[in-house]
Design a protein around this nucleic acid. Sequence first.
DNA 1: CTATTGTACAACCAAATGGTTGTACGACTT
DNA 2: AAGTCGTACAACCATTTGGTTGTACAATAG
Lengths: 112, 112
Amino acid sequence: MVVRLALSNDEIDRLFRALADPTRRDIVRRTLIAEATVSELADHYAMSWAAVQKHVAVLEGAGLVSKHARGRERMVRGNPAQIQRAQALLDSYEQLWRARVDRLDALFADDA
Amino acid sequence: MVVRLALSNDEIDRLFRALADPTRRDIVRRTLIAEATVSELADHYAMSWAAVQKHVAVLEGAGLVSKHARGRERMVRGNPAQIQRAQALLDSYEQLWRARVDRLDALFADDA
DNA sequence: CTATTGTACAACCAAATGGTTGTACGACTT
DNA sequence: AAGTCGTACAACCATTTGGTTGTACAATAG
């Protein structure tokens, strides 16, 4: 599946920033496997409920998870599309390098 | 090309943290296309030389670029292998989600 | 030899981050 | 109706981050 939507510079910042924390990565992991409430998530970490709530908010701001109300609970769900956008981003960097290798190859081919 | 080497939690933190800044991403971009000295890089940004030098140090700490001495200059070169490690990481998250989809599919298949 | 260039690094500062506790409130339970 | 549960958010604090200027030094140029 190919991802199309482009991200602004700020969105990219938030995306990678959100991924640069082990607790947040673990929340993404868990919620990609199965959705969970903030309280359920908080049980797994050695920090206050409020701290976990903040991490979820950061992930939400980065588009990596979404929250859906269900009664008084908020179900947190991982968003694979945003992971794919990050992948697409990194892929574009790799392409730059490949292009450079190709240029160098062409140079040597000329020499031969 | 498949990347094997595993990264520690701290290394992953540093990797994504390093990518969460537009100046640093631009340095990665430039040095993947062609290596450059720190001074050459600094010319492109509206900040002091020292600030750019710090950004390069962060990228180096994250393994995204490497520096090689050449006379009094330090050539900065982007490291595609580290980009690929980041990709592999994100891919593992996407796999989790695919596994979940497969489980749900199996569930519905049982129902049918 | 002297001057200049490219680099490294320390000290400092403002803002952001990651954590805490406390308060508030709507939604279920009894 | 009263109590509890899950959530949200503000205020606060220590540390980290992203920038600055200033000093130092090795390599090259004149």
